[in-house]
Write a protein that binds this DNA or RNA. Structure first.
Lengths: 341, 341
DNA sequence: TATTTCTACGAAAACGGTTTCGATAGTTTC
DNA sequence: GAAACTATCGAAACCGTTTTCGTAGAAATA
């Protein structure tokens, strides 16, 4: 009812044109930086637009030009802990700019994914970010999509697609490098579901670091589930079978939390007797344990940001860096590997 | 490059019209269920549309009709643990339907929020869902917004707005009712940041339940932070000062986890000696503790779903149930309050 | 001065739909 | 058999932009 605010018919380009006493064609050109408009006229038009608080109707814009100013974010499963930071990074990259993001959650369902994809294309999104719940490669959406597609976290199985993923091998490697730097030599590894690519890659990285130092893993890697309970059980087995280990590299903070509990139960001090390092830097878990967890941070928000920029670049034709990229991870040192002061 | 797939120019209404040998006007009417088109003709047109796999261009549609088929989801801070289920519920309600959601994360910034709001309105969204990171009331977006707005989780300060929030008082109440049903009578309460509405509301609910049973809280409610560490510290204080308590109602699963740790450290058995109940049903925490946590589930996904439907109703003019609603919460019973078999 | 070249601008055609309204043909009514 | 309806359809305006292309006038050239 009040006349302030955003109510009432939105001001349109022809309003601006009328006020600046030019045709809408000229107004359009002036506002878009076309060059066949006299400087004085352009000023007049810009002023008029500013006074009327004009912003062009994206739908109308999208009809003629085929840029809609939107991108689709197609997630495999929002539930996952890893989606959120990536989402945040991406959304933030669009940020205050001209483009908005459609969020589509496929809930782990292929059919729903196809449906959402269709909807996004019908809406003429300018690009698509596909973010998967794990680092396991996922089926490609196909090559016949008329807009750029970037796969985040879960890479596409098709090498022709461009994917951004986290360097899991590096993650395993710097876990162990850190443990060695802390003077540990009898190192064991507890990880999650062996069918996960992350599991295998981290084991690989861990072996690399051990090899480089002339060391060997104590016992085989213990692979089972991504749960705290498994961390407890595995640690118990480990400490019983190899009482002399002095460090455990865990493939998730959840597992590490379990390990911490078992160590405490069995009277081993962390980090004095056993150093423990986690993976994920999930603050809820890592910051509230006793002691706080040293861990690996995959920079997921940065990954999301990069995915967004990759889409931008591809949209702008700057389709340079095709192919996939493996983003470096980061070591976070806390009390579970180094006694505080 | 392949000719299958979605590539190539999208099929348009005039394609359909041509194939059905009618004008685009008639085609439009047929597809939209207008009634001045002969049954036979309509069939022909529908068939043509189906064969060509036609779907109307939402932008063109949005230009004439003023329905864009989109809604905006304006979140205060994606980081929060509570946003995600709500987001999922809402997104899923739009689901396979005709409407897609713009995701906007204000990152706790008023200015960014205004900016996003502006962008959503310029895009002519048909509705807006504002989801806040806590149950604290938040400033209204104002009354002069031309589309329906629903506030989820964090209600609007303005009673004229329609808000959907979680019944925190009920949450506190059924926590204690459950503890009492388990035979506990000496009940204490550990909660989080006292400036949170949730904190106060839950205390209120707890008092209601105790009053109804003729009981009193053991000691004052301990209010400080939403962290596991605080849960540990508070529990230690509590057990020292009141060694005879037999139950602790915690205002978050994080706090409950801390309490569990302290109980174990001090040799109290859970649930035999002390029953512990959490709040949030955050599976990562609640399912991996020893024992698993009884807790309160706020049905956040349902809340998101309802918010979406509320927007739908308001869009369709079925603007019935204005005003705010307080959604019931749900008790989840696990091992921390009842010994397993 | 007459011609050519620019420059700055606007008329009009898209873009892909919806909607109003008039036209046509077939039916009914008197 | 003419008038009045009714049912079905299509021409055209419109939504708010962008873009092409034509043109008037000024400036440069002959």
């Amino acid at each position: 009812m009040s006349s302030s605010g955003t109510a009432g018919r939105a001001t349109t380009l022809s309003d601006v044109a009328r006020r600046a006493d030019v045709s809408i064609a000229t107004a359009s050109k002036a506002l878009n930086g076309r060059f066949d408009v006299a400087p004085a006229t352009r000023q007049r038009i810009l002023a008029a637009a500013a006074e009327l608080d004009f912003s062009p109707n994206p739908m109308a814009k999208g009809l003629s030009a085929d840029r809609s100013g939107t991108v689709g974010i197609l997630t495999g499963d929002l539930e996952g802990r890893f989606m959120i930071p990536i989402l945040m990074g991406a959304e933030n990259a669009f940020g205050t700019g001209r483009v908005n993001a459609f969020l589509c959650d496929a809930r782990g369902d292929q059919i729903r994914e196809q449906h959402h994809l269709k909807a996004l294309l019908v809406r003429h999104v300018d690009g698509i970010i596909v973010v998967g719940p794990s680092t396991n490669p996922r089926p490609s959406l196909g090559q016949d999509i008329p807009v750029p597609v970037v796969y985040a976290y879960a890479p596409s199985e098709d090498p022709r697609d461009t994917s951004l993923t986290s360097d899991e091998v590096m993650g395993g490697r710097i876990q162990v490098e850190h443990l060695i730097a802390c003077g540990r030599t009898r190192i064991a590894h507890i990880s999650g579901d062996p069918t996960f690519a992350a599991t295998q890659n981290r084991v690989q990285g861990i072996r690399q670091a051990l090899d480089a130092a002339g060391l060997e893993l104590v016992g085989p890697p213990l692979l089972s589930q991504w749960s705290e309970a498994w961390g407890r059980d595995a640690a118990a087995m480990l400490l019983e079978r190899h009482p002399d280990i002095d460090a455990i590299a865990c493939a998730s903070d959840q597992i590490a939390r379990g390990v911490l509990d078992t160590a405490r139960d069995m009277g081993r001090r962390v980090p004095e007797d056993i150093a423990v390092i986690g993976y994920d830097n999930w603050d809820v878990l890592a910051l509230n344990s006793r002691p706080q967890l040293s861990t690996i941070d995959a920079n997921l928000e940065e990954l999301g940001r990069l995915a967004a920029h990759q889409v931008f670049d591809a949209m702008d034709g700057t389709d340079t860096s095709a192919g996939s990229k493996n983003l470096p991870v980061r070591l976070v040192i806390r009390g579970s590997t180094i006694a505080s002061r």
